[in-house]
Design a protein around this nucleic acid. Structure first.
Length: 204
DNA sequence: ACATTAACTGTTA
DNA sequence: TAACAGTTAATGT
């Protein structure tokens, strides 16, 4: 159930570099826009949303991550403040490693460093695809780009076997649309046999 | 809490 | 000017 996959590093290794487990309740902020990145974060259990809000207060979701995925790690190599928030969607356990220890770990473990590059590539690929399709201003194109990506990160390739793990509102916030538009567009897509809707579950 | 519908408004192809 | 996305608000699951 991953989106644009962050990577996963062995917990034992994280521990040996000063990794510590932190517990968060539902809807807690792990970091906020403007904070300086001080840690590498990896989810042990739970779900984390990366987002920000525009001038009108409308939410934009950048990603939703869960078990075994890292987040915000791109900023750890930069001396810049986070441009996004990281908020838990459920009670979540996160492993965090101080920045300097993390950089040391990268030097000590070239294979982890290589994996990190692979993870960055995937994230950039997802961003490029989404930017291109959101620029189209066609709601179906936007939603299709998102759900195609969601499905591509799954094993399941059979038609209508993949259940989209997002609410209508989350799809709207991922694509810059309104919920009502998402609902209308999903119906059109169902009529065109692009997907199925069974008791409100979106099957793709 | 999330999903749907309807009636209306403004924008645009 | 017809289609379509957004707005608002009520209603359903």
């Amino acid at each position: 159930m991953e989106v644009a996959s962050g990577m996963s590093i062995d917990e034992k290794i994280l521990n040996s570099y000063g990794g510590e487990s932190k517990l968060y309740k539902t809807s807690e902020l792990i970091f906020s826009e403007g904070d300086m990145p001080l840690y590498y974060f990896q989810i042990i259990k739970g779900i984390v949303k990366l987002n920000n809000y525009n001038e009108e207060g409308k939410e934009f979701i950048h990603n939703i991550l869960n078990e075994e995925q890292s987040f915000g790690e791109a900023l750890i190599f930069l001396d810049k403040a986070y441009p996004i928030n990281a908020e838990t969607l459920v009670a979540t356990e996160v492993m965090r490693v101080p920045k300097s220890n993390f950089l040391e770990m990268m030097n000590d473990h070239p294979s982890i460093s290589t994996q990190m590059n692979y993870s960055f590539s995937q994230q950039i690929y997802f961003k490029l695809i989404m930017i291109q399709h959101i620029a189209s201003h066609n709601p179906m194109v936007r939603i299709k780009a998102l759900i195609d990506y969601l499905k591509s990160s799954q094993q399941e390739v059979d038609a209508f076997a993949f259940q989209i793990p997002l609410t209508r509102q989350q799809i709207a916030d991922f694509t810059g649309l309104r919920v009502e538009t998402v609902i209308r567009t999903l119906k059109k897509m169902e009529n065109s046999n692009l997907l199925k809707i069974e008791n409100r579950k979106i099957l793709y």
